[in-house]
Design a protein around this nucleic acid. Structure first.
Lengths: 376, 376
DNA sequence: TTGAAAGCGCTAACAG
DNA sequence: CTGTTAGCGCTTTCAA
């Protein structure tokens, strides 16, 4: 027996004509082809709407496929085409838990919008952990992704650099801190937002506006704080602020207290983080300060609870839904090679939701949209 | 040229030795094998911890792979092994939006826990839409899943039956309404929960307990309502309840109002749905009823806002985190063929978080855990 | 102990 | 217009 003969044996005779549905009982494309009396190409084309088949054939094939309960193998398609239709979604974690992502209203809403937008374009989102320190499995390398969304990438995030290096498009929510080479990013116009909100407080009669900010160096904190300091300089007010580690909820309450205990107590405060509203309200109560009579309050939050606090608190909304949607459009455009028609950096406006806590005189209920979006 | 010869030609000569990294620039397993001077089998074994290779070889291969930045192709692995490491997560939707899943604290927490549990076992969650009416793409068939988690499957859910029919394990959160053949389900012990909570209200002095319930026929509503009616019968109280379409937020407020406007006004109310607490509180205020002096209140909710309402409202927590975790364990056990060591149905306890709104006398702060879990 | 080879099920060239 | 065929990159018998 020659090598060639042996080859032929193993290739031809030793194998049944392959109708034997290896798919664990389920029908494969070959079964459909056989049952419909056509070739597998025709089946593939008919089902994918490709090629120039007569409508009759197409219908027939689809019918047979349906009858056999045929489900194309996503794995095979992915391997062949190189596209999985899957987009990773990851959030930098602050604590122990791999997932804080539904805990904050911002992330929850952002994720919801992103999921929705992705599905509308035929992609699904896979929730993945941030750089896992002790992860027993490397889930990242076990899933075929077409691209990734990173929320709040930390400085020099190893996952991001790794992904980008392997040629995967990465779009971040929040501008990357260091020189992370993300494909694109989307972020709010934080300077504009803070400036607008401080103006609003000043218009409401605030003379000395305080700030409750974080100790970390992420861009959100940095940009917001800088904007505050610049605003103070411009209007000639001495900055009054307290900082605390934003991830520690107790520290926030203490910092709020510190801020109101100062000799140069502010008559208005802006809190950068979600819980600051309630913390400041509690602190104000302790010091016998009435809101908004003695103290004006604004905080950055997506939470609806501030609509029903006593009094309702004015909030700055970062519009996470809009951001989630934009991030996904940008990412999918990149994946499909449509971009970059859009800019690689996109700055989105915020919404100031004015409630009782920031209105000392009159009852104007203005909603400022500091700047029109770059597009969209 | 014979057929055999032709075959050999096409198989051997016409193809380069395949080192030419088709992977869009990235290294493939063959590149690693070549660079390490071993066969691809050895590379595969070395990286996957299989086979009985000398430690030296294994280390060497890993080193080379690392150096080349080799990332195994998840798609190829999936195709070959039939396992993707992906689990679908879907929520029955009530409105227009394909995703309400982060909107309710229950879903958000359940999803968080499920994601976390899945990752701990090496799986990732893919968020998928409920049976899409007008979805332009069928995302479901484009992703290779090892199993699916369905939250609140509706009666005769077409997606579920389809999935089960195609041999995919499906575990549901909430017992399936009809005769949905899910692989397993996890649910709270709703009868026990309602009974315990009504007993608590009675102990706090309630004479006539009212119920705010839904018009839909899902098991949660049905079981809870039935438990209420049976409890009433047992203690000899006339049932006092109002129903409304749970998905409509406005209807809830109106129903709450109706309930308190009745001539046989209850002196305690249990609301089955999350917003009922605030709705009932508002209604009580309108009728000049003080809580808890004139009206005792409990509602089923995972929301933290009820800890800070005026007064704080007693809530029944379904412990979605525990459920999410259990669902995932059950599903992965099934996928990996470990089960069913565990029961196919698992009933989980609830927690009554007692706050001011349900305590008329004394200040007992009991947390009742009606019944020990079946296992775990 | 190591390696060659056979595909997993599908799509896309290309030949007929 | 339809069918044949060569792989996508990997794991896994099985033979050396």
């Amino acid at each position: 027996m020659t090598a060639a003969e042996k080859h032929q044996v193993s290739r031809k005779s030793a194998r049944p004509p392959r109708g034997g549905s290896r798919l664990n009982g389920r029908a494969g494309i070959r079964d459909v082809a056989a049952a419909a009396g056509v070739s597998i190409t025709t089946v593939s084309d008919a089902l994918n709407g490709k090629g120039r088949l007569p409508d009759a054939t197409r219908r027939h094939v689809r019918e047979v496929a349906e009858r056999l309960g045929y489900r194309p193998s996503a794995a095979a398609r992915t391997l062949r085409t190189g596209k999985s239709g899957l987009i990773g979604l990851t959030v930098t974690t602050y604590g122990e838990e791999p997932f804080t992502f539904t805990e904050f209203a911002y992330f929850a809403e952002m994720a919801r919008a992103a999921t929705s937008a992705a599905l509308a374009r035929g992609y699904a989102l896979v929730i993945l952990p941030a750089p896992a320190r002790h992860s027993p499995f490397d889930v990242w390398s076990n899933v075929a992704l077409d691209g990734t969304v990173v929320i709040d990438p930390s400085d020099q995030d190893p996952v991001v650099s790794e992904l980008v290096r392997s040629g995967l498009p990465v779009v971040s929510d929040g501008r990357p801190s260091g020189s992370l080479p993300v494909t694109a990013w989307v972020d709010n116009d934080h300077e504009e937002a803070v400036t607008g909100l401080l103006d609003h407080l000043a218009e409401s009669g605030a003379r000395r506006i305080g700030l409750l900010t974080g100790t970390s160096t992420d861009t959100y904190t940095r940009l917001s704080t800088t904007a505050y300091l610049e605003w103070c300089e411009r209007v000639g007010q001495d900055p009054v602020y307290e900082t605390y580690p934003a991830h520690d909820p107790c520290a926030g309450a203490i910092a709020a207290d510190r801020l109101l205990a100062r000799p140069d107590r502010p008559d208005a405060v802006y809190g950068l983080f979600d819980p600051n509203g309630t913390d400041l309200l509690a602190a104000a109560r302790r010091y016998g300060l009435r809101v908004p009579e003695d103290l004006l309050l604004v905080c950055c939050s997506e939470s609806t609870v501030y609509a029903t606090t006593e009094p309702p608190i004015t909030t700055l909304s970062l519009k996470p839904g809009r951001i989630g949607n934009t991030v996904i459009q940008l990412l999918i455009d990149t994946i499909e090679g449509i971009g970059p028609t859009r800019p690689v950096q996109q700055v989105m406006p915020t919404d100031l939701i004015v409630r009782t806590s920031s209105q000392r005189r009159g009852t104007r209920t203005t909603v400022s949209a500091p700047r029109a979006p770059a597009s969209d």
